[in-house]
Computed example of a mutant assay.
Amino acid sequence: MTEQEVLSDVNDELFSLLTETAGIQEFLDEFAVMAAHRLSGAAPVSCAVTLVRRRKAGTLAASDAVARQADEFQNRFHEGPCLEAAMTESSVYCPDTVLDARWPVYLERLDTRRVRSILGVSFALEDSGRAALNLYSARPDAFPSASIKAAEALAEAASSSLRFAVRAASADDENHNLEAALASRQTINTAVGIIMFQNKCSQADAMAILQRAASSRNMKLRLVAERVVDSATRDS
């Protein structure tokens, strides 16, 4: 697969994905499928997109189950060519997962019947973190220099679209975390109010009671608060 073939009409396809997909996750999933299709040569290629942000790595999208599992194993064991590509902002190639010794923990657990060669290509995200386009093949030596250049060219061509998508996905994740935190705080406040009413005590005393209950049961404060609220709701 040549660089020219890979990049043929790529901007038009990226624009179509951005405007026609229902949301950011669908765009990322469709991009992974598109990249896998464009970069497949004599043998099919699987593709995933990894984001490393605040020292945490996650798989944003994958073209199939093979890519997702191979990608998530790297995130779980904190090593692998794709993570290294993202962290070093370079391309990292593993020509044969059976013979390579650079990532022993990861490669020992990888299903080498389905993944024999791996290519990780970084792409710029500016302040949104670090990311990589990850390619997996069941054949060893599946990514010669021409394929590596083609993958790098695709990552560069798609970088602005991916940067937008990753920022949006990160914002969605932060909003979800914020909403969860606010919901947790509201539950705790409600439980404190119930304890104040039941025990005729101050807010500080009620919080202390809740914290002691969580500590004695070895439970998170939110879970104990939920039980207090549920119990009061049933009794009302």
Rank of each mutant, 00 (worst) to 15 (best):
L99A: 07
F123C: 11
A142I: 06
R68W: 13
T97C: 08
Q4P: 06
R109I: 04
T233C: 10
G129P: 00
A158S: 08
Y93E: 12
P104S: 05
M34D: 09
A157Q: 08
S202C: 02
L51M: 00
V228R: 00
R109N: 11
R167W: 03
K220N: 10
V121G: 03
A155I: 02
T2M: 15
R116Q: 12
R139A: 06
V49W: 06
L83H: 08
A155D: 06
T21P: 15
V229H: 05
F77K: 05
L119N: 02
A181L: 05
V10Y: 08
A157T: 09
E174G: 10
Q74E: 04
E126A: 15
A180L: 15
Q211S: 13
E3S: 03
R54N: 00
F27V: 15
S236V: 11
D141A: 05
N134D: 15
D29N: 14
R38C: 02
D12K: 14
L221K: 12
A208R: 09
S46T: 07
V33H: 13
E174A: 08
M219C: 14
S145H: 15
T112F: 03
L119T: 01
G23F: 03
R54S: 00
P44S: 11
R38L: 01
I194Q: 04
I24F: 09
E30G: 15
F27H: 09
C201K: 07
D230L: 04
E152Y: 13
R102P: 10
V121I: 03
M34S: 10
M207S: 05
V33C: 14
I188Q: 11
A62R: 04
T112V: 09
A35Q: 08
A101W: 11
W103V: 03
G58T: 05
F164K: 09
E72T: 06
L135V: 05
G80M: 03
A158R: 08
A146M: 10
E72G: 03
S160K: 10
Q69A: 13
A213L: 06
P140T: 01
N175K: 14
E126R: 06
E156V: 04
H78V: 09
R55F: 06
L7K: 00
L133T: 04
F73S: 05
L182S: 07
E79H: 01
L51E: 00
D205Q: 09
N175M: 12
A168G: 10
P104A: 01
